[in-house]
Design a protein around this nucleic acid. Sequence first.
DNA 1: AAGTTGACTTAAA
DNA 2: ATTTAAGCCAACT
Length: 108
Amino acid sequence: MIGASIPEFEQRVYEITCKIPCGSVATYGQIAWMMGMPGYARQVGRAMKYVSQGMSVPCHRVVNASGRTVPGWEEQRVLLEKEGIAFKKNGNVDLKRFIWREDIENGI
DNA sequence: AAGTTGACTTAAA
DNA sequence: ATTTAAGCCAACT
């Protein structure tokens, strides 16, 4: 089988992305930091671009540090609103309220 | 091999 | 809030 296996870096990005709970969002830099590779926000973004539908990765829950959604992907906002995520007047996610926090997940 | 690009980030103006 | 500038790092030309 000659398949193009997914590079390890991307695989790890997807694993973390899958842990983002419904109703929360994470930033590229945050994911990079969580996988022990701070400074790799751009690579995380690149990995997201390569997510195909069959992978079941909730990449719509990933936005940039400003809370801005992916340019050119209008459906993303709808998907997020469907999960209860609210947007600010400027069209960005209200990160203050919806950024993913593991400490709250664990009830701390 | 050197220059460009990008689903990024932070800081400054 | 918006725009610039600089820093960043791997993939792509």
